[in-house]
Nucleic acid binder design. Structure first.
Lengths: 208, 208
DNA sequence: TGTGTATGCAAGTAAGCACTTGCACGCATA
DNA sequence: TATGCGTGCAAGTGCTTACTTGCATACACA
């Protein structure tokens, strides 16, 4: 019997699924073991403790997040396309973990292990996008009568509520393909019509 | 020593606060008793069990929700004002419980008592608003190239993410006064600019 | 004063949970 | 064949939790 990565991966997959649906505290090590089809004691042999499983999951998520961020790097000057691609990327990343990131954000308020894992991730994302918004307000693509932070919040509110409604509340179905989903594009279009500057909006009116 | 409503109210207030911040399962009856400054056994004397506390809270929330809905009844034909008032009402109601409703929506996926309490509340709200949207697409106030359900989702996504960022993730501060908050109005304006029909948008452009 | 009610205190019960320990088995390798 | 490694099984430990039980005290009211 060899030490294959298979057992650890099975444990992490099971933990990801259960943490996403039940939260960290609401998931027992026994449940993880059952779903992974291993003996409970094996969890503790492969990871120091329950928090160790969470940390390994966090490292895996960070790895995938880095991959997604590289894929979303802007290769054109078009603000709309950049934001749409970012929206799809955010949604895809969040759906990939079965809503785990969103669940962990909730759990971070009460579970020390989770809070430690997440650190200050979320506000940083908001700040970065607000800067992006401010730049493109200055260059005229985005309307400038709305605070950049408000715009960034509306954007991330769109992506996070999309995931929350589907993965948490069971409203609607997850998309078969995030990259081409029409519903995502319509949601984004609502945002974009509201956020873009007046001339850009006029151009879009002709397109309709 | 008289049986005043005070003890039960103190218990419910304490439970609301703790359920909102820790979730139902993450809140112990001992913690509720401590926060309410009563002996733990008193909880079981006033409410049959922990789930009974939750049910009493649900009844209280439903009562307040009914009060809010009456306050938001449309008394004009203006769609924008109606939706803005509804947005403020949704946000005020959600903030009032310290984010409890949102927390319970999460907990409903894994805790049977919570799921039973919430029933089918949320999709119903979405459907109702989608009908409202469809009506006003037909009469020309709202653009008609976006599905009504998508519009309704964008609207409730706005309100729920507003609450989530502030009550759960600690991004930004809760408003001092929902009825007059400029941030809420800007967020709504972003939505409205995207959702309204072209002529209405043009009128707004002159206003800017 | 006697009775009824609400509440506190203390001890206890049964179940669940994260984790530990000892033994045994199966597989791979030298 | 002997050794090392990974894993399963079973029992166990100490702690937490929702809830119960018995006794006692304080207050209101007839």
């Amino acid at each position: 019997m060899s030490s294959t990565p298979d057992t650890a991966t099975r444990i992490l997959d099971a933990a990801a699924e259960l943490f996403a649906s039940r939260g960290y505290a609401g998931t027992s090590t026994r449940a993880i073991a059952d779903l992974a089809s291993v003996n409970e004691v094996t969890l503790f042999r492969r990871f120091e403790n329950k928090a160790g499983i969470l940390q390994a999951l966090g490292a895996r998520m960070a790895q995938r997040q880095a991959g997604h961020a590289a894929a979303a790097a802007p290769d054109s000057e078009d603000v709309r396309e950049t934001l749409l691609r970012l929206a799809r990327m955010e949604i895809a990343g969040a759906l990939e973990g079965g809503g785990l990131a969103l669940r962990l954000a909730f759990d971070a308020t009460t579970v020390p292990e989770v809070a430690e894992l997440l650190g200050e991730g979320i506000p940083g994302n908001l700040d970065g996008l607000a800067e992006f918004m401010a730049e493109h307000q200055a260059t005229g693509e985005l309307r400038s009568d709305i605070e950049p932070h408000v715009m960034a919040e509306a954007f991330f509110g769109l992506t996070s509520s999309y995931v929350m409604y589907r993965m948490v509340m069971g409203v609607g179905a997850p998309p078969s393909d995030v990259a081409t989903d029409k519903g995502i594009e319509q949601l984004f279009d609502l945002f974009w019509s509201g956020a873009s500057a007046s001339e850009t909006t006029s151009v879009m009116e002709e397109k309709r």
